[in-house]
Structures are given as C-alpha cells and as structure tokens.
C-alpha cells in the first residue's frame, strides 16, 4: 500500500494553527512590548487568531479514522504524547483569546481592564508559542522519518507561525481598511514589515541550513532525499517555499519603500503565506514520500491531490470558506476593532 497516511488535510492544520498563534502574538505586542503603533490592527489580529483557531481542528477531526472518538484526546490524554497536548493547548488558547475579545469589546472602561488584558496576554504568549511549537515537535520527534527527525522543525514551526500570522494580519489590514475606506497607517505597517522581515530571515536561515546539512548525510540517506527535493518537491520546495515565499519577500521587504505601496505589501504577504503553506506541505507530505522497501533500502513515491474525496481540493477550499465565514462573523459580532481604530485616529 503506497498511499501516504497524513495527506493534504493534515497540512492545512499546522498552517491554520500557525496563523492563529502568529496573529495572536502580533495582537498582544502593544500590550506586552509597548508597541503602541501596532494598536492600529491589534484587535483585527486577535479576531483573525480567534477565527483561525476555531477552524484549525476541522481538518484534523475529519482526518481521523474514528472522528466520533475525537473526545478521547480529552478523556484519556497520554502525557508522553506531543499530540495529546493539542486538546489542552487548544482549549486554553481559545478561552484566552475569546475572553480577551469580550473584555476589549464590552469591558474596556472598567478599572481592571488593563491588568486583566496584560495577565491574559502573558499566559497567551506562552500558550501560542507552545501551540505552534508542539505541532513541529510531533514531526521533529519522529525518528522513523528522515525529513522530520530534526530539532530545527519545532523552532522553524514557531518562526513560520509568526511570519504567516503577521503576513495575514498585514494583508487583511490593507484589504479591510481599503474596503472600509479607512486611512492605512504607514507607521504601523512599517513596524509589521520589520517583524515579518526579521522572523522570515531567521526562518529561512534555519530551514536552508537544515537542507544543507542533509546534503552531507550518508549517500544511502541522501539519495532518496535528493530525489525528493529535486524531483517530487522541486517546485514547492525550492520554488515556492524558498524562493517565492522566502528570498523574494526578504529582498523586497528589506526596503521601507515596499510599504509605500500597500499593493506591494499585500503581494509580499500573499507570497509569504504561499511559502509557509508550501513549508507545511513539503515537510508533512514530503516526509512520507520516502519509504523503506526493506531495511536500509529506500525509495520514493508520488502524491497527487484529487479534486473530490477526502483531502481533495474541494475539501480544502471548504475549510478555507468556513474560516472566511467565521472571520466575517467575528468582525460583525465583535465590532470594537473599528472603534479602536477611530479612537487611535
């Protein structure tokens, strides 16, 4: 049986959980690190984190062999399993982000507002880093897969989570503000550009050094890996993940001028998001494309996404639509993000 077990649905999950964590981190920077200029879109970032967080487990649950038993992860969590952490981190993260949104929307005039939001943000930043890092740990601790088994994976998952969350915040900030005919704050955008640039730089350095180290692996290990990198994942790894989603945005965003045109910033955000999605894809799918035909005899297989059926393009599109619906709903039921902007203006 040469089908891979964790298909496209599983790649959507870390993409979403990363965005949730990244957008949340952007949202609390004004509170924890006094980055006042980021207040402009901190509530928008929080709503993005919230909608993405709710959407994240959908592909996971659908992928389970017995989805009706998903609750077992809360009832019988095994402490040694990184995957068992999921349920608890997700619940805590959801409670923290929902509470923060409610406080911002309806209790911002109270005496305890600031101290409560600060306390929630302190817990929140730890949880969000753990939430994006634990997914990387699931892969990084799996010694049976040559591509996964590296301590770099959890770190680069956290970094790429921040990059993707910040990029999506930037993209939606420009989009929603333009639709709402609000003035785009260049200073805020510039601050976001710097965050994205430095984190993306670290991420690209980590991932590329990992790649370079792999080329020095023993021939028997490197042979199937090279086939993987240059044949099966040629476009998505070298093309989308490293060049389109990494090197090009790094060059463009190096210059402050790039944000003078919101269209360029939007385009760079899209490229970065494509790159991060490609990273999830290359790691998860790619790791399973190298198989052992017999001890120490490796070969590679291919994976093609279908249109229909589990994990098909239709499924993935539906999950993205659910996410868009939830975000639109959040923007309507938690309207403070607009008021906050006006106050700031």
């Amino acid at each position: 049986m040469t089908e891979i077990l964790w298909g496209s649905l599983i790649t959507v999950y870390p993409f979403f959980s990363g965005i949730a964590a990244g957008a949340y981190i952007v949202s609390i920077l004004p509170v924890l690190f006094k980055r006042e200029e980021l207040k402009e879109f901190s509530l928008l970032a929080l709503l993005i984190a919230w909608a993405t967080l709710i959407t994240a487990p959908i592909p996971l649950v659908f992928h389970l062999g017995s989805p009706w038993r998903a609750g077992n992860i809360f009832i019988f969590p095994q402490s040694t399993s990184p995957m068992a952490l999921f349920g608890y981190l997700w619940i805590i993260f959801l409670i923290i982000s929902t509470t923060t949104i409610i406080i911002y929307n309806w209790f911002s005039n109270t005496a305890w507002f600031r101290s409560t939001v600060t306390a929630l943000s302190v817990i929140g930043i730890v949880i969000s880093i753990l939430f994006s890092g634990y997914v990387g740990f699931i892969f990084g601790s799996t010694k049976s897969k040559e591509l996964w088994y590296t301590p770099i994976v959890p770190i680069s998952f956290v970094l790429s989570a921040i990059v993707s969350g910040a990029a999506l915040v930037g993209l939606l900030y420009i989009l929603i503000w333009r639709i709402s005919r609000l003035r785009i704050d260049i200073q805020a955008l510039n601050s976001l550009r710097k965050i994205i640039w430095w984190t993306l730089l670290l991420d690209v350095v980590f991932v590329s050094s990992e790649f370079i180290v792999k080329t020095y692996h023993p021939a028997a290990v490197w042979r199937p890996l090279s086939e993987l990198f240059f044949r099966h994942l040629g476009l998505s790894y070298l093309g989308i993940q490293l060049i389109i989603g990494g090197i090009i945005p790094l060059i463009v965003l190096l210059f402050k001028k790039s944000i003078s045109s919101p269209s360029i910033m939007s385009l760079m955000s899209i490229l970065i998001l494509a790159g991060v999605f490609a990273y999830r894809w290359n790691l998860i799918i790619g790791g399973q494309l190298v198989i052992e035909a017999s001890p120490y005899v490796y070969t590679t297989i291919s994976y093609v996404v279908g249109l229909l059926g589990e994990g098909g393009i239709l499924w993935i599109t539906s999950i993205f639509l659910v996410w868009a619906f939830l975000l639109s709903l959040a923007l309507v039921i938690f309207p403070r993000w607009k008021v906050e902007v006006k106050l700031h203006d």
Partner: peptide, 12 residues
Amino acid sequence: RCIGCGYCVQAC
C-alpha cells in the same frame, strides 16, 4: 479507544 490518528503508524 484508538481514534485512528495514525501517529503510531508514522512513529514505528
């Protein structure tokens, strides 16, 4: 009890 997550399949 198994939920069919497949983690053990990947880990073996």
